[in-house]
Amino acid sequence: MVVSRKETPPNINIYINDTKLQQRDQFKYLGALISSDGRDTTEITSRIAQSKTMFKRMKNILTNPHMLIERRKRVLECYIEPILMYGCETWIVSKQTRGRLEATEMWFLRRMMRIPWTAKKPNDTVLSETKTKRALINKIRKRQATFFGHIMGRERQEHLATTGMFMGRRGRGRLREKTTDGLASWLGMGSTVEMIKMTRKHDVRRGMIAKAMRHGTG
């Protein structure tokens, strides 16, 4: 695979014992899809689809009106959300991605309450009826912050890959958003550099995450 910003990645020829390796646009590694464009859109789409499929398999429990909603939300949190958030530590939660994830979160709640789309109930009403708040994005950010702090604290190859500099000139156009950009904003940091310095301290990082969980929605 060649990871490139170009619409058509360059062709490569690699042989092992006179056998040419097949070039792929994407492949699954440790359960996560890696794409040649370097984006995580395909992986997030796959995660959403898999979590919805599992929800439908467990609909007899999750949509059971005779079971307390709090218990059903607990089942959702234990069995469905882990499928959705698998590998989210490296996701880039852009504005578009956040909208899709929040829509998925509401999709779960609406079906748990058996609310048809024809009812046209606002999201705020659904959240009120289920006695809950939007929490999915904060959960993802918390996992990202914890993972980032772990990398910064160890200062090994992962640290170098995250903070290192690339040689050469960058391509034309606007820079792609990075995982650290949204994470720094969520933690209330002015810049990525400031976030790196602060997250190296375990106690400080825990306080930052706790504060962001209460107030952060970015």
Rank of each mutant, 00 (worst) to 15 (best):
T163V: 15
Y86P: 05
C78R: 15
K178Y: 04
T63C: 15
Q50T: 08
G218K: 10
D181I: 01
G38H: 08
H159L: 00
G149I: 05
R206C: 14
Y79L: 15
Y79G: 02
R98N: 11
S35A: 09
M189C: 15
V2T: 12
K56G: 04
N123E: 06
M167G: 03
V126P: 09
I137C: 12
R98A: 08
M152G: 01
D203L: 13
A161V: 02
T42M: 15
I83D: 03
K178M: 09
L30V: 09
A210E: 14
M54H: 13
K201G: 02
F148Q: 00
M165R: 12
Q26K: 14
T179N: 12
T132Y: 05
K131L: 07
F55L: 05
R5P: 04
G164P: 03
A135C: 02
N17H: 12
S128V: 09
S51V: 11
D181W: 00
A184I: 06
Y79W: 14
T104N: 07
A32I: 12
G182W: 08
I34T: 08
R205N: 09
R174C: 07
R154V: 15
Q144G: 01
H202W: 04
R156I: 03
I80H: 05
E129D: 13
Y86Q: 10
I151H: 09
R141P: 00
E89D: 14
S94E: 04
A135D: 07
H159Q: 14
R172F: 08
L33H: 08
R39L: 07
G149V: 11
I137A: 01
F108N: 00
I140T: 04
T53F: 15
W107K: 02
L136H: 02
N17V: 08
T163G: 12
A49N: 10
G168Q: 05
Y79A: 11
G31P: 07
T41I: 03
E129C: 09
A212L: 08
R214Y: 11
I80K: 10
E155Q: 13
R74L: 10
R74W: 10
T19W: 07
D18F: 00
L175T: 05
T97N: 14
R114T: 12
A161F: 09
R74N: 04
T192M: 05
A103L: 06
L175R: 10
F108M: 03
M67T: 11
G153W: 06
T217E: 07
K95G: 04
T63M: 13
Q157T: 12
A119V: 10
M54P: 02
T199P: 07
D40G: 03
R5I: 00
L21K: 03
Q50E: 14
T180F: 05
T125S: 13
T192E: 13
L21E: 08
V2A: 11
N64T: 06
T8H: 08
S94H: 03
E129T: 06
T42W: 10
C88A: 10
E105A: 07
L175W: 06
M165T: 13
R72I: 07
